[in-house]
Structure formats: structure tokens, C-alpha cells
């Protein structure tokens, strides 16, 4: 395997692994559910994209064939991650989970639960 290709794959893998670790670290560390939602939807999505692109390059080299089917998983995850986050946020709101005390705009939670317009 040529050295430059190996370096590209290694760097992409390391970036991906780092972002996946940061995403999970944020999930364990942040104090309330609404803040925890941010780390898996963003950091983990970028992390998995890095690992998938690295896998794509390596498999293309190993099989002498441009293997772009990994892009399917990337696209699928990019489309579904916001939807899953939105549904989890809805669940949290409908279960009346209190946000942190210092959160701004706490008055909006009630109108969110009833899907009303915000209070003036």
C-alpha cells in the first residue's frame, strides 16, 4: 500500500475515532437531557463519516474497484440523525423533564408541549 494513501486513511480514522469519543464523552458528562442531545447528533455523525470515508478508501484499494457503497450509510445517517434527535427531544418535552435552572427561555417549554405559539 502506498504511504500517502496509508497516511490519509490513518488520519481520517483518528479524526473519526476522536469525534466518536468526544460525542460519547459529552453524552456522559453534560448535565441535562436537552444539552446531551447535542453531542451524539453532531459529534458522532461527523465521527462516523470520517470512519466511513477511511473504510471507503481502504476497501477501494484492496478490491481494485471504486467502492462507494459506504456513502450510502453516510447519507442514511446524515438524514436520520436529526429526525431521531427531534423525536427524542419531543419525548423529553412531553414527559415534562425540567431543563437546567440556568436555561434561558424556560417559559417556552409549556407552549412547546401544547404546540402553541410562544407567549408574548
Amino acid at each position: 500500500m502506498p504511504l500517502f494513501l496509508e497516511i490519509i486513511v490513518c488520519v481520517l480514522l483518528l479524526i473519526g475515532g476522536l469525534f466518536l469519543l468526544v460525542g460519547s464523552y459529552g453524552l456522559a458528562r453534560l448535565p441535562d437531557i436537552y444539552m446531551r442531545l447535542h453531542s451524539p447528533t453532531k459529534a458522532s455523525t461527523l465521527g462516523i463519516t470520517g470512519v466511513l470515508i477511511a473504510s471507503m478508501i481502504l476497501q477501494s484499494y484492496l478490491q481494485d474497484f471504486v467502492s462507494i457503497k459506504e456513502l450510502l450509510i453516510t447519507l442514511f445517517l446524515l438524514i436520520t440523525a436529526p429526525v431521531a434527535a427531534n423525536m427524542i427531544a419531543k419525548t423529553a418535552i412531553h414527559h415534562e423533564i425540567k431543563p437546567l435552572n440556568k436555561t434561558r427561555g424556560k417559559a417556552l417549554v409549556d407552549s412547546m408541549r401544547n404546540r402553541d405559539n410562544p407567549p408574548k
Binding site: L20, I33, R36, Q59
Partner: peptide, 29 residues
């Protein structure tokens, strides 16, 4: 502490599992 947290944790777990399986595939070539 809430059910939503547990769903979120499962959601993150499956993303990490995808990465682990792909890594194993790369390891085995």
C-alpha cells in the same frame, strides 16, 4: 435518569457499533 436519556444512549451506541464493525472489516481486509 429519564427514559429519553436511555433512548439517546442506545441511539449513540448503535452509531458506535457501526464504526466498530467497519473497523473490524478493515482489520480483516
Amino acid at each position: 435518569p429519564s427514559v429519553s436519556d436511555r433512548i439517546l444512549a442506545l441511539d449513540t451506541m448503535y452509531i458506535n457499533t457501526i464504526a466498530l464493525i467497519l473497523l473490524y472489516g478493515m482489520y480483516m481486509g
